[in-house]
Design a protein around this nucleic acid. Structure first.
Length: 815
DNA sequence: GCGGTCACATGA
DNA sequence: CATGTGACCGCG
């Protein structure tokens, strides 16, 4: 045998102190089974931990070692390229390798090792009434309790347990419990062959039902699910018992995959004919996939230009080459209709991945991918980690969406992960949007990305007419309603003709805060300092904090000046609904917001009702802005374009433009011409003006100059440190430490700008103080190592101070 | 991340 | 000195 190899294992602990490989001996009987990516159970100090093999080293390099205790899977969960990806994630987003590994595997993958205890023959002598006596009694009474359970019950038993194990009074053994279980169903099989079957049937005598069951199973070659047998023959399980006892039939467990969507039966849908523009886009993408060289496209197509059909056909051509494809969509647009479209085109070659699946369902979809049962994945952000072995194409639809940035560690950006995997696999990335992220459009301008434009709508419909209403004039003219005269008139028209209306409430940031019109008092959450929002449920007027859930009654008089002019201000969907009921009492309204769509599937139900024309007006927030397509909608109203413009965020203009453009795109996608009314107190703002004309390119030209002037993306990348602590001075101190160290490290570097310590826009969340330090730099490669050092050191100090420090590399939003 | 251990305070 | 408590050490 060649010289012994030792496994380098990353243990499942998310602490920077242990974020390095540890060496373990591979027992001979596992030599064949372990490879890079294998999940193992290893001894780690006094504990047993799950870990992943990330490499091997030779004996000479190893100083200390213990043997691997267990190999946890038949097939390694991670492929070597995923191990490499985990390494990259940890470097790019400054997280531990363990955290990266966890992000790229389905939740529920984690196994739990538990320790069982058995009393040896020799019993300990214990003082009656002592801790030891209690423990001994517990061990007798519930011998199946694990060591972990006992310690959780009475922590003071821990040292006794340790002593008894050392003295040989207790014998430990461990058991592994998989997180998500492989689901099995019980099946029945006839054990008899043709020679013994007649005799057995005879022997059953007058047991008619038993004979039926036996004959039924004898006719089948395969095992049949028990519940099918019972329902088919309308037998009960008691019929089976004698057959099992006689050994004529046997039970066996068969693995099944949970399939949350089911297989779509019937004819697979055929590809649709492509327009000239679609054909041109398809040809370029398919050629890139063929070339097997990594390449990224920006597919910039106006709403209704038919991007999805291009995606579908590009995926088909990729799959035809024996390679796999990943399609990312924003979580919100991962609707049943969307999934159905893929299932209809590709049948059961498709796996679906999103956050609303149960842990078991996720695990099973993941296994279908890993085992090669499917070639296509449709999913939200994390689907970019699908464990395919040869990816040909990755599509990021609506690539500008903020939801492509993960909000906890590792705070990855799906678009970047796609581009990294493309380099690993020689794959093509397609970033699709009508309103691309400014960065993406800029990279296309610079030539790093190839841009394909689709500027015409497939059906040749005209873009909707957009009117911008200056709300300041309305107020001057004495219209105190939230609907301008124009919007109200247009709505009346639609209600008469029976056409439908979508009302969009741009509620980002400041919603319905409560303000005293006499003294300016604003009701805030005592914990978070965030303006409370007004809610009305079952006649009860309440103020609630959107971040921590705090609630109080709506005050009648101002707590500050005792005046009686306290009003809720801004506009929430509920208030618009009330106003609608007042102005148009005969109209049916469907309201969609967090309150009405919390239940599972309620989102889809409401949309279906609107589609069935059970209501003339659909009223909602961002969640109705995209992906919707209703033939009978001819009017879209935006109550106020302003709210998102004044969010303290450099992307506010971009977001507002994108939102307004998307919303406007909802109108008139079919035969009927569409109209859009945007109300604003700042109608002259360029984001509003360019959205009105649906001019992305002009908006881009304008905004890019703004970004350049103030050194914001795409000219610099932003990384944000957030120091969090219940103690304000400590939070501030850590943030200042970060700032000071960064200033020292980057002294004299004009490619780096440090924005000093400032209270975070959400300065108090859940009773904790938050301070931000933001670094702007040109190339992460040139600053990453320094930022990492500062982060690791300061994070440790923050922990000592009872708080924590988090980091967001390439932050999309500073919160 | 966390169990073990060590240094030190507290109390009789 | 026994016992409790908090910091920190090191895991292969």
């Amino acid at each position: 045998m060649s010289s012994k190899r030792f496994a380098e294992v990353i243990v499942e602990l998310k602490s920077s102190q242990v974020d390095r490989p540890f060496h373990y001996e591979v027992p001979d009987h596992w030599q064949q089974q372990v490879e890079i990516g294998t999940r193992v159970l290893v001894p780690f100090g006094p504990r047993r931990l799950e870990g992943y093999i990330v490499g091997f080293s030779m004996a000479a390099e190893v100083t200390k070692t213990k043997p691997i205790l267990e190999v946890l899977d038949d097939e390694p969960p991670l492929t070597p390229d995923l191990v490499q990806l985990a390494g990259w994630l940890s470097e790019r987003y400054l997280c531990t390798t363990a955290a990266a590994v966890q992000a790229l595997l389905p939740s529920g993958m984690r196994a739990k090792a538990s320790t069982t205890l058995r009393l040896a023959d020799e019993l300990p002598f214990v003082q009656p009434g002592s801790l030891e006596a209690d423990l001994l009694q517990a061990l007798y009474e519930s011998p199946n309790k694990t060591k972990e359970q006992l310690i959780a019950e009475r922590p003071e038993w821990r040292p006794i347990l340790r002593a008894w194990v050392a003295a040989g009074i207790l014998i430990e053994s461990y058991r592994i419990k998989q997180g998500a279980q492989v689901k099995t169903i019980t099946c029945l099989r006839c054990t008899l062959d043709a020679t013994r079957f007649p005799a057995a049937l005879e022997a059953l005598g007058r047991a008619k039902k038993q004979k039926e069951v036996l004959a039924f199973l004898f006719d089948r070659d395969d095992a049949v699910p028990m519940k099918d047998v019972l329902s088919e023959l309308s037998a009960s399980s008691s019929t089976l018992k004698p057959l099992l006892e006689k050994g004529y039939i046997q039970k066996e467990e068969q693995e099944v995959l949970r399939d949350p969507y089911g297989i779509v039966h019937g004819q697979k849908e055929q590809p649709l004919p492509l327009t000239e523009l679609q054909r041109a886009a398809y040809d370029q993408i398919a050629a890139a996939v063929d070339s097997r060289k990594p390449e990224t496209f920006l597919l910039q197509g106006v709403t209704g230009s038919g991007k999805t059909e291009v995606y579908l056909q590009a995926i088909a051509s990729c799959v035809a080459q024996g390679r796999q494809a990943i399609m990312l969509v924003p979580e919100i647009s991962l609707t049943p209709q969307m999934v159905e479209r893929f299932k209809k085109r590709f049948g059961d070659d498709v796996a679906v991945m999103h956050s609303r699946l149960s842990a078991g369902e996720k695990f099973d979809e993941w296994r279908r991918i890993r085992q090669g049962d499917v070639t296509i994945v449709v999913g939200a952000r994390s689907a970019i980690f699908a464990p395919f072995h040869s990816i040909g194409l990755m599509i990021v639809d609506e690539e500008h969406e903020v939801s492509y940035k993960q909000d906890d560690h590792p705070k990855y950006l799906a678009r970047e992960v796609a581009m990294y995997r493309a380099r690993q696999h020689g794959a093509t990335v397609v970033l699709g949007s009508a309103t691309p992220a400014l960065e993406t459009r800029w990279w296309a301008h610079q030539g790093q990305i190839r841009r394909i434009e689709m500027s015409e709508r497939v059906m040749g419909q005209r873009l909707p007419k957009v009117k911008v209403i200056d709300m300041r004039n309305e107020l001057q003219e004495g219209n105190r309603s939230m609907f301008s005269t124009v919007l109200q008139k247009e709505m009346e028209k639609r209600l008469e003709t029976g056409e439908q209306i979508i009302l969009f409430l741009n509620r980002r940031g400041f919603a319905t805060f409560v303000l005293c019109r006499s003294c300016g008092y604003v009701a805030r959450c005592p914990e978070c300092e965030i303006p409370l929002t007004f809610h009305k449920a079952r006649g009860l007027e309440q103020l609630r904090c959107h971040y921590c859930g705090y609630a109080e009654r709506m005050p009648n008089i101002c707590p500050d000046c005792q005046g009686d002019h306290v009003r809720h201000f801004g506009t929430g969907t509920q208030r618009v609904e009330e106003e609608l009921n007042r102005v148009f009492p005969e109209a049916n309204v469907i309201r969609m917001d967090v309150d009405t769509t919390s239940g599972k599937g309620s989102h889809a139900v409401l949309l279906q009702r609107f589609r069935n024309q059970e209501a003339q007006i659909l009223l909602g927030t961002q969640m109705i802005a995209k992906g919707l397509d209703f033939p009978n909608v001819t009017l879209v109203g935006v109550i106020s374009a302003d709210t998102s413009l004044f969010v303290p965020d450099f992307r506010a203009a971009e977001r507002t433009f994108q939102l307004l453009t998307q919303v406007a795109g909802r109108a008139g996608r079919h035969q009927l011409p569409g109209e859009v009314v945007i109300q604003s107190y700042n109608p002259q703002h360029y984001a509003v003006q360019f959205a009105k004309k649906q001019e992305y390119e002009n908006f881009f030209q304008h905004e890019i100059r703004v970004r350049h002037a103030v050194h914001n993306p795409p000219f610099r990348e932003l990384t944000a440190f957030t120091s969090v602590n219940v103690n304000e001075t400590e939070a501030l101190r850590i943030a200042r430490t970060v700032e000071d160290r960064l200033r020292i490290l980057f002294q004299g570097r004009d490619d780096v700008i440090i924005l000093g310590t400032s209270p975070a826009p959400l300065s108090r969340l859940q009773g904790k103080f938050r301070f931000n330090v933001v670094v702007k730099y040109v190339r992460f490669k040139q600053v990453g190592a320094s930022i990492r050092t500062v982060y690791l050191e300061a994070a440790q100090e923050a922990q000592k101070a009872g708080g924590y420090l988090s980091i967001d590399v390439n932050a999309q939003m500073i919160l």
